[in-house]
């Protein structure tokens, strides 16, 4: 287990030919994705295309039936999943903050229980992360008393406090009022610029175009086309990607 005070070095991430079926419903049919060290991949595509499921196979909230997930070229499928999830942070559409705890305790819980930090040290790390997301003053608030945007920023701080090597964002701004989206996207862009390896499932095409190193288009459980944002948005090849872009842009 790494210590919370250690610095994280960027890792590369590779998803190889991942298959997954829930009964007869084949959600992933050989999806692959590559993200370089410190790179940001945005995954776009229609709903039901398997984007969120693909994301969950990376931190093994869902175990793939077939295929592999590699960090720095090494498969994580043999690792202890709980230890893996401390290295791979995740942010959800509905924030998934713990409503019965204060903002501070939402962040310190894993630091204390999993990283075994003392109370003061954990609080110090948590406050530093809250500062980073611009919520230093709300440490003692309950999640329900924060706006959606603030809640999502707490969720990001909570994930970052564990010093993950990879961050996964599952439609992190989809549940937010339009005026709150910008602040959260800003933090994500900062994080990407800081060299965090990230996979971002998003409907924010502007964000994908400006922040992503790679944009991957998913449909029907596979990544149909992936490449630099300029290529994907300006010179889409696959007809389904073209149709998708004509509908969302």
């Amino acid at each position: 287990m790494s210590t919370a005070t250690g610095t994280t070095t960027p890792v590369s991430l590779s998803v190889r030919d991942v298959h997954l079926a829930f009964g007869v419903n084949r959600v992933l049919r050989g999806a692959s994705l590559d993200v370089g060290r410190g790179g940001t991949a945005c995954v776009i595509g229609p709903s039901g295309s398997g984007k969120s499921t693909l994301l969950r196979t990376i931190n093994r909230l869902i175990e793939p039936d077939r295929g592999d997930v590699l960090l720095d070229g090494r498969s994580v499928l043999g690792d202890d999943p709980d230890a893996l999830r401390q290295r791979v942070g995740m942010v959800f559409q509905q924030f998934n903050l713990f409503p019965h705890m204060t903002v501070l305790r939402n962040i310190t819980l894993a630091l204390r229980r999993l990283k075994r930090l003392g109370e003061d040290e954990a609080a110090q790390v948590a406050r530093a992360e809250l500062e980073r997301v611009g919520l230093a003053g709300r440490a003692d608030a309950r999640p329900a008393h924060l706006s959606g945007g603030q809640q999502q920023r707490v969720a990001i701080a909570r994930a970052l406090a564990l010093q993950p090597q990879v961050m996964l964002f599952d439609e992190a701004t989809s549940a937010l009022d339009p005026e709150l989206v910008k602040g959260v996207l800003g933090i994500m862009a900062e994080l990407a610029a800081g060299g965090m390896t990230m996979v971002v499932v998003t409907h924010e095409m502007g964000f994908a175009r400006e922040v992503a190193d790679t944009v991957a288009f998913m449909d029907g459980g596979v990544v149909l086309e992936a490449g630099e944002p300029a290529a994907i948005f300006e010179r889409p090849e696959h007809p389904r990607l073209r149709r998708f872009l004509s509908q969302v842009l």
Partner: peptide, 12 residues
């Protein structure tokens, strides 16, 4: 989602 949120942090 609460369980998923906790599991994603690394809790068993």
């Amino acid at each position: 989602a609460q369980l998923e949120g906790a599991r994603a942090l690394g809790f068993s």
